[in-house]
Design a protein around this nucleic acid. Structure first.
Lengths: 224, 224
DNA sequence: GCAAAAGTGTTCGGCGTACACCCATGC
DNA sequence: GCATGGGTGTACGCCGAACACTTTTGC
């Protein structure tokens, strides 16, 4: 690591008590037009009984990306989705003032692909963002940062690809955007803008779903 | 830290070999219409003789912010400037595969306020961004990320306040922007756009600097 | 008066936004 | 034939980009 070993005599002192590195993954999805986040009920101290963002220690030989991918897969069974580093927090747990850091990531998953871990303890569950329970540590702050980033990313990237199945209707896509942005969007403007980006393209398929005109299906031109 | 102690038996194993946490600070300035970055010549292994981004281990009881502030002050004597977390890297030093992480920050400093640390070894020096020497570890990547973020920040924040003295001319401000963006800007459009943001305001002062009309001085309305 | 940098306005194209009606289908 | 959601076009305001001349000063 890029440490100036020589001019920092404190470095050696600090090394005597090496901090741990944890990875947290804020996992978002959109179900029933609501933005939801995956939380885990802690079944042991500290903060037993509180809900928290899934996370765990960085393992030996593992890169940060790998740890985030692993953590996401452990909880949801999903891989190959939007997953991006968010921010690194040093003081999430004010009680343990040991210099531990938590590297937070955020992920977007299609609810249809998720298989939540079926543990009895430490069980994960989806929580709607405007109905979050009291969280352990300072996890509210992490979720706030993640949500801001998500709103931002949505404006100029194809990140939504990760929240939807291969094929989807324009309405489904719009509902995802509306859930994340938290406001209604104009149908015509939305369609025009999204098609202008080249993130998505029409397929030749349609989907009939009721007593009305069938909807054309679209796909993301790139999934990454 | 938000670790799931119970369902992650690996966590205890990983704790046996706790990784270290370092903080790196990419310090930018603009001198002579050139974007420059502060580098340090390493005087001991690893990577002895190579230049690197200033950094050091997180000290006990210190938050990440505090470590970044301290590191910046050690090298430049400057405090109270734009300083923001950038990204956290786990594999900067491929040789030491010990799970150490480097939390990179980036800072913007006014060259007039800087007093570089005057060591004989580990001496810091400014390097123009388009003339960077071979760097230790993977520090080129860190600088690339920092530069991208800087360009981005400049578009919609008042970050430039940190690169200029209290009072400055419109031309000086434009030169800072041009150095960072790497392209010339139109004088009239630049002036109009910046004044429209309310980041800056005119003062009643002028500065006469040669056989030509004196320039009005401006200031940032907010310095944070 | 002349050299040098400061200061100023207008035009144009693109983009986001507001807004209302016809279309295709199942029953 | 009617209820239901799918699909479409236009007008306007704002913003970024291009572009050239006058003003103020020191010598």
């Amino acid at each position: 690591m890029t440490i100036e070993s020589a001019p920092a005599p404190q470095a050696t002192a600090a090394a005597a008590r090496r901090p741990s590195v944890a990875v947290l993954v804020v996992i978002f999805t959109v179900v029933d037009s609501a933005l939801q986040v995956l939380l885990i009920e802690r079944s042991a101290p500290p903060a037993e009984g509180h809900w928290a963002i899934p996370g765990g220690a960085l393992q030996h030989g593992e890169s940060l990306d790998q740890a985030a991918v692993r953590k996401l897969a452990e909880e949801t069974g999903v891989t190959d989705v939007f997953l991006e580093q968010l921010y690194t927090f040093a003081d999430l747990d004010p009680a343990s003032n040991d210099g531990s850091v938590g590297v937070a990531w955020f992920a977007l998953v299609d609810p249809a692909r998720v298989r939540l871990a079926q543990r009895t303890a430490w069980r994960p569950a989806w929580w709607s963002l405007d109905d979050i329970p009291p969280l352990a540590f300072d996890n509210e702050r992490v979720i706030d940062v993640a949500r801001d980033r998500l709103i931002n990313k949505l404006q100029y990237t194809n990140a939504a690809y990760s929240l939807l199945p291969e094929h989807f209707t324009m309405r489904e896509l719009q509902e995802v955007y509306e859930a994340i942005l938290g406001r209604p969007l104009d149908k015509r403007n939305f369609r025009r803008r999204l098609l202008a980006t080249d993130f998505i393209a029409a397929t030749s398929e349609q989907r009939a779903e009721g007593p009305h005109r069938p909807a054309r299906l679209y796909r993301f031109t790139s999934r990454s």
